[in-house]
Every structure is written in C-alpha cells, then in structure tokens.
Measured scan of single mutants.
Amino acid sequence: TFELKGKVGKVVKIAEDHYLVESEGDKWIAYSDEKLSLGDRVMVVDVDGLKLKVKRIP
C-alpha cells in the first residue's frame, strides 16, 4: 500500500472545513488541529480513510 504517513506536502487550497494538500504529485483532503495558510509546508501525521491529518513544519 502507498504509505503517506511522514510525507511532506503543501497546502494548495483552503475550504470551509478542510484543506487541500499536494503531496507526491497528488492532491488530498486534509485537516489539522492548527490553522494553516496557503503555501504552508505540512507533514502527514495520520491517515483516516482518504483524509490526511497534517501538521505545519518549518
């Protein structure tokens, strides 16, 4: 299986209740415990079905 946990991506869209993150050339629906901005670099900390939980990284 394709393992996304630990992968790095970038926030490419902000929606009302989720983010769109591009990682490894694909776009994924993501959510975070912190507020993210367009262009933020993020790391995948968990995968919930087809949704990614991400956190901001420097």
Rank of each mutant, 00 (worst) to 15 (best):
residue 39 G to M: 09
residue 39 G to C: 08
residue 52 L to I: 09
residue 48 D to M: 05
residue 7 K to R: 07
residue 40 D to Y: 05
residue 30 A to L: 01
residue 40 D to V: 07
residue 24 E to Y: 03
residue 28 W to L: 08
residue 20 L to F: 09
residue 24 E to H: 03
residue 39 G to V: 03
residue 53 K to E: 14
residue 57 I to D: 14
residue 2 F to V: 15
residue 45 V to S: 05
residue 30 A to K: 00
residue 48 D to F: 13
residue 54 V to A: 02
residue 34 E to P: 02
residue 48 D to Q: 08
residue 12 V to K: 05
residue 9 G to W: 02
residue 38 L to Q: 10
residue 3 E to T: 01
residue 57 I to C: 14
residue 23 S to I: 15
residue 29 I to S: 12
residue 1 T to C: 15
residue 57 I to M: 13
residue 28 W to A: 03
residue 7 K to D: 03
residue 5 K to G: 15
residue 29 I to Q: 12
residue 29 I to V: 07
residue 46 D to A: 04
residue 44 V to E: 02
residue 7 K to L: 04
residue 33 D to I: 06
residue 7 K to V: 03
residue 48 D to E: 09
residue 40 D to E: 10
residue 22 E to I: 11
residue 40 D to Q: 08
residue 20 L to V: 09
residue 3 E to F: 02
residue 36 L to S: 00
residue 45 V to W: 09
residue 54 V to P: 00
residue 21 V to S: 01
residue 22 E to V: 08
residue 1 T to R: 15
residue 53 K to P: 01
residue 36 L to Y: 05
residue 54 V to G: 01
residue 41 R to N: 11
residue 13 K to Y: 09
residue 24 E to T: 05
residue 41 R to C: 13
residue 54 V to L: 05
residue 35 K to D: 07
residue 32 S to Q: 02
residue 5 K to M: 15
residue 51 K to Y: 12
residue 23 S to C: 15
residue 5 K to C: 15
residue 34 E to M: 05
residue 40 D to A: 06
residue 36 L to K: 00
residue 50 L to Q: 10
residue 12 V to G: 04
residue 43 M to W: 12
residue 22 E to G: 04
residue 55 K to G: 07
residue 26 D to T: 11
residue 43 M to L: 14
residue 20 L to Q: 06
residue 5 K to A: 15
residue 8 V to H: 05
residue 11 V to A: 01
residue 16 E to V: 09
residue 6 G to M: 01
residue 23 S to D: 04
residue 27 K to A: 09
residue 1 T to K: 15
residue 18 H to Y: 11
residue 12 V to W: 06
residue 49 G to Y: 08
residue 50 L to K: 08
residue 35 K to P: 09
residue 3 E to N: 01
residue 19 Y to H: 02
residue 44 V to P: 02
residue 15 A to G: 07
residue 24 E to D: 07
residue 56 R to G: 13
residue 33 D to G: 07
residue 36 L to T: 01
residue 54 V to C: 07
residue 18 H to T: 13
residue 23 S to Y: 02
residue 33 D to Y: 06
residue 6 G to A: 01
residue 31 Y to P: 00
residue 7 K to W: 02
residue 22 E to P: 00
residue 14 I to N: 05
residue 4 L to K: 14
residue 24 E to C: 10
residue 12 V to S: 08
residue 25 G to T: 05
residue 14 I to M: 12
residue 33 D to Q: 08
residue 28 W to Q: 02
residue 50 L to D: 06
residue 49 G to V: 05
residue 21 V to Y: 04
residue 31 Y to N: 14
residue 33 D to R: 06
residue 56 R to F: 14
residue 53 K to H: 13
residue 21 V to C: 08
residue 58 P to E: 12
residue 46 D to W: 04
residue 39 G to L: 13
residue 24 E to W: 03
residue 6 G to R: 00
residue 13 K to C: 10
residue 24 E to G: 04
residue 5 K to Y: 15
residue 8 V to A: 05
residue 39 G to R: 07
residue 49 G to S: 06
residue 29 I to Y: 14
residue 23 S to L: 15
residue 29 I to R: 11
residue 11 V to H: 00
residue 8 V to M: 05
residue 56 R to Y: 13
residue 51 K to N: 10
residue 16 E to S: 11
residue 6 G to S: 01
residue 55 K to E: 15
residue 58 P to R: 04
residue 50 L to P: 08
residue 53 K to R: 12
residue 56 R to E: 06
residue 32 S to H: 02
residue 17 D to S: 10
residue 5 K to V: 15
residue 27 K to F: 10
residue 13 K to E: 09
residue 37 S to K: 05
residue 53 K to N: 12
residue 54 V to Y: 01
residue 28 W to K: 02
residue 9 G to T: 03
residue 49 G to C: 07
residue 43 M to S: 06
residue 23 S to W: 01
residue 41 R to S: 14
residue 6 G to T: 01
residue 15 A to P: 03
residue 20 L to N: 04
residue 35 K to L: 10
residue 6 G to H: 02
residue 41 R to L: 13
residue 46 D to M: 03
residue 5 K to H: 14
residue 14 I to W: 09
residue 25 G to L: 04
residue 25 G to C: 05
residue 40 D to P: 00
residue 3 E to Y: 02
residue 26 D to L: 13
residue 17 D to G: 08
residue 52 L to N: 03
residue 31 Y to H: 12
residue 5 K to E: 15
residue 42 V to C: 11
residue 2 F to Y: 03
residue 55 K to R: 08
residue 10 K to E: 14
residue 37 S to N: 06
residue 37 S to Q: 08
residue 27 K to G: 06
residue 51 K to T: 13
residue 50 L to H: 12
residue 52 L to E: 02
residue 16 E to P: 09
residue 20 L to E: 08
residue 38 L to I: 09
residue 40 D to N: 08
residue 27 K to Y: 11
residue 10 K to M: 08
residue 27 K to Q: 06
residue 34 E to C: 08
residue 46 D to S: 04
residue 12 V to D: 06
residue 12 V to P: 00
residue 4 L to P: 15
residue 27 K to N: 09
residue 48 D to W: 07
residue 53 K to L: 09
residue 51 K to R: 12
residue 53 K to C: 10
residue 2 F to C: 15
residue 43 M to I: 14
residue 36 L to W: 01
residue 57 I to F: 14
residue 10 K to V: 07
residue 15 A to F: 09
residue 32 S to C: 11
residue 15 A to D: 10
residue 2 F to P: 15
residue 17 D to Q: 09
residue 53 K to W: 12
residue 24 E to L: 05
residue 45 V to H: 06
residue 23 S to E: 03
residue 13 K to R: 10
residue 44 V to Q: 01
residue 19 Y to Q: 01
residue 14 I to D: 07
residue 7 K to A: 11
residue 34 E to F: 04
residue 17 D to H: 11
residue 40 D to T: 09
residue 29 I to P: 07
residue 34 E to N: 05
residue 38 L to E: 12
residue 32 S to W: 01
residue 13 K to F: 10
residue 44 V to W: 04
residue 26 D to Y: 14
residue 30 A to H: 00
residue 9 G to H: 02
residue 43 M to A: 06
residue 26 D to H: 11
residue 10 K to C: 13
residue 49 G to H: 11
residue 42 V to G: 00
residue 18 H to D: 11
residue 12 V to I: 07
residue 50 L to G: 11
residue 34 E to G: 07
residue 17 D to R: 10
residue 32 S to K: 07
residue 28 W to I: 08
residue 8 V to C: 08
residue 47 V to K: 03
residue 14 I to A: 10
residue 48 D to R: 03
residue 35 K to T: 12
residue 37 S to G: 06
residue 50 L to V: 07
residue 9 G to F: 06
residue 36 L to R: 00
residue 55 K to V: 14
residue 26 D to E: 10
residue 41 R to Y: 13
residue 21 V to D: 00
residue 19 Y to D: 01
residue 19 Y to C: 11
residue 10 K to R: 08
residue 57 I to A: 09
residue 58 P to D: 14
residue 56 R to W: 14
residue 26 D to C: 14
residue 15 A to L: 09
residue 4 L to Y: 04
residue 27 K to M: 08
